[in-house]
Amino acid sequence: MAATEHSLWYKVWRPFLILFLITAAEFIVAFTVPKGVVKVTLFVGMTIAKAFYITAYFMHMKFEKVSLAYIIISPLILLLALLAALWYEGAKLFHLLLGG
């Protein structure tokens, strides 16, 4: 295991601290930034940052073979494309059926 080369600080406590700080920042944003596109964008960005630290460090994807990351992440990118298409289609159907 390559993971043993790194210190516990690097593998556990630093990511934990970052996750904690991002969550704290989320609360600050929740109470200060007015509702709107900016707020949602900030939240989504911070969520993806948290997701990165959990998968890269806690699930130690960062310390595995690179091909594993490709295997897991590429279907998720395709999933995003599918969701965008479904979203578009769903909006059209809503419009058609409900006139909304």
Binding site: T47, K50, A51, I54, T55, F58, M59
Partner: peptide, 9 residues
Amino acid sequence: HFVDLVWVF
């Protein structure tokens, strides 16, 4: 960790 990840979302 995956369960934690889902909770983040």
